[in-house]
Design a protein around this nucleic acid. Sequence first.
DNA 1: CGGCTACCTCGTAGATGGTCGCCATGCTCT
DNA 2: AGAGCATGGCGACCATCTACGAGGTAGCCG
Lengths: 330, 330
Amino acid sequence: MATIYEVAAAAGVSPATVSRVYNGVPVSAEKAELVRAAVAELRFTPNRTARSLRRKNAEVIALVIPDIENPYFTSLARGVEDVAQEAGYSVVLCNTDEDPGKEARYLEIAVAENMAGVILAEADGRADLSELIARSRPVVAVDRSTLFDLDSVILDNRAAGVAAARTLINSGYRRLACITGPAEIDTAEERAEGWRSVVSPSGSLERPDDHLRYSSFRVEGGRDAMAELLALDPAPDAVVVTNNLMGVGALQVLSEAGRVPPAFGVAVIGDLPFTTLTPNATSIVRLPARDMGTTAARMLIERINGDTEPARTVILPHEVVAAASGAPAL
Amino acid sequence: MATIYEVAAAAGVSPATVSRVYNGVPVSAEKAELVRAAVAELRFTPNRTARSLRRKNAEVIALVIPDIENPYFTSLARGVEDVAQEAGYSVVLCNTDEDPGKEARYLEIAVAENMAGVILAEADGRADLSELIARSRPVVAVDRSTLFDLDSVILDNRAAGVAAARTLINSGYRRLACITGPAEIDTAEERAEGWRSVVSPSGSLERPDDHLRYSSFRVEGGRDAMAELLALDPAPDAVVVTNNLMGVGALQVLSEAGRVPPAFGVAVIGDLPFTTLTPNATSIVRLPARDMGTTAARMLIERINGDTEPARTVILPHEVVAAASGAPAL
DNA sequence: CGGCTACCTCGTAGATGGTCGCCATGCTCT
DNA sequence: AGAGCATGGCGACCATCTACGAGGTAGCCG
């Protein structure tokens, strides 16, 4: 690749002038034109590595998420990518697999590469962001909040849990179980707490937590938990599932057991990806995954551009899509 | 962040020695220990930007895919990420949305950032890779082949089309339609060609191409095409769908029309993501998405490490999962 | 109308943080 | 004692940005 020196020589100006043309520093129209011509001739593109080194700031943002195979995070990533690309940033995708070790390694790389900022959906709620903060690299938390005082884009998880449980109650189900994610993950706990708050006062279950299962946020997790719940006595007649993939697993098991909705009530928090079931018998609490991505990316870019307001928290709304049909008559 | 100079000063050695410790160049145990102590003390991490500038080689690979929301590419990305991470590379995710303009921009960035290599699932089969090749940046084509002579990891698309059609014939269906992607995309054309080769000689359809629909590789595309096919006269009794998302769309429309498999035969090329249908009435030609990612990443890393063998093409096998039940009696 | 100041443009040169080629030193082995 | 090797320091180099200052022009004031 041609360098800025070659362009300068070809245009008969100094390298500094070429640089100025690229950085919006005033240059006489005449010289700017010379530079543009030379750039076109030599097919010059500035070397981003050298630029980052000098500027101490790469035009790259890191997106750190726990599971790239979950369509929820995939939509979120899509949102981030759209906004970032628009603003001239590239996105480095960091899949942590819910592993704090991998997460820490990626955060270190973000520092070592002088990345402009980080959008983080934390694995375990204990990430050490002090290095990033010490170098004033902006970080925006998304989906899950952190120990640090950061801009965050989150959901009202408790309310989502309440909404999911309520829609089942409204459909006439009475003994609601719940399948949620690992207890260490706040979102899992909060959504379950929403379910509990609906189920407890109604008194339809004596000890609600007997009908609560913690599992992994994956299809297998939903399957395992659902199988256990079906074996209970007294058996539940409906279930709140706090994550999309678990929801798929639960529906698979129910279907194998011949108890598809509405025979068994199901409310899932998070969109069921690519459903082929059409008579919509399961209730969905839709989460604005893509919006979360675009919002987080926009906030991050504002910070990168020097915004120093105190940390903001944006809570995006969910949307309840109730099942078309209710519980079978008792 | 501390620099290599500060570490050198703290350890009482030269910066070059510190560098050597990081690069596996022999250093006396004594000095190495001094360096390690200073590194720990100052919490030093080498600046990757500076390193890339000097080395003309960033420890980053670009993964350029047309649709990050398609679970097929998501699995592929996962495979790439796993191998890359293992080898110390980060992955920059570039979502082109099947847009050659976006793709070109990303490839330019890969050059400008001195990325170590590119894994490319091309949007339109006309990408200009000459700049990358001129700088001997390795490129591996994945899923789709390119105009250039590159390492590729692909599928036998024609065979997949044949397999999908055969499984329907074996189940007793006779009038097989086909839904495929945009005609410009080779994979779409090749898979349809497989279907055509099965359908034509059997003569069950007079003009097979009347039952062929080109559409977009998305859920909507599958829906639109399926709706059209259902309206045909004579109507098909089964359909080969050449992509997972289109398969979902087709199944949705069939389900709305009350013609779920096996009432209407469906064979899909590509795994149906997160199905909740259990009695598996649709045939699937499973594609090794993740393996494609790991294979491509491994090939790329070999090239980065200086392998100069002639370009290789790896064709990964698909796997046919036939539907459990056949066509209804005629 | 002349001179001083202010401003605008542009070039020079140093800085950015590592890496690596070259060379000097000192030790070992023959 | 001489050859050869292991070790480590010096300084050039990577490609760009930017502080500083030089030079020129214009405007204002006396």
